[in-house]
C-alpha cells in the first residue's frame, strides 16, 4: 500500500502508523463522562469508505486525515490535520 503524503509525496506504507477512525471529536471540557466515554471507546466498524488518522512518523511527522475504503484499501483523499505545519504567528 502507498500513501501520497501532501508534504513528502508518494511513500510506502511502512513509513506510516495507523491510529484509527478520525470521526470522533474530543468533547469539550464540560461535556460530561458519557460524551468522553463515547469518544474514547465507541468506534464504527466500517466496511467501506472511512475517514482515518495516520501518522507519517517515518517522514515529516505529520498527522494525516485519510479517506480509505476498508474493503479495497483505495485511498481517495489525504489531508493534513488542522494543526500541521509551522508556527501560527499572526493567526
Amino acid at each position: 500500500m502507498r500513501i501520497v503524503c501532501p508534504f513528502c509525496g508518494e511513500r510506502e506504507l511502512g513509513e506510516f502508523t495507523y491510529l484509527g477512525d478520525a470521526k470522533p471529536q474530543r468533547p469539550a471540557a464540560d461535556a460530561g463522562e458519557d460524551a468522553v466515554y463515547d469518544y474514547v471507546y465507541l468506534r464504527d466498524n466500517v466496511a467501506g469508505v472511512m475517514s482515518e488518522h495516520w501518522y507519517h512518523g517515518g517522514g515529516c511527522r505529520s498527522w494525516l486525515k485519510i479517506t480509505r475504503n476498508t474493503l479495497t484499501h483505495e485511498i481517495s483523499s489525504v489531508e493534513p490535520a488542522a494543526g500541521v505545519g509551522a508556527a501560527k504567528v499572526g493567526v
Binding site: L19, R26, H53, R61, S62, A81, G83, K88, V89
Partner: peptide
C-alpha cells in the same frame, strides 16, 4: 507521536512546536 497528535489534531489552535 502522542504529543504531535495532541498538537496537530486535538489542539490545532495552540501556537506550539
Amino acid at each position: 507521536q502522542h504529543l504531535e497528535f495532541c498538537r496537530q489534531v486535538l489542539f490545532p489552535e495552540l501556537d506550539v512546536q
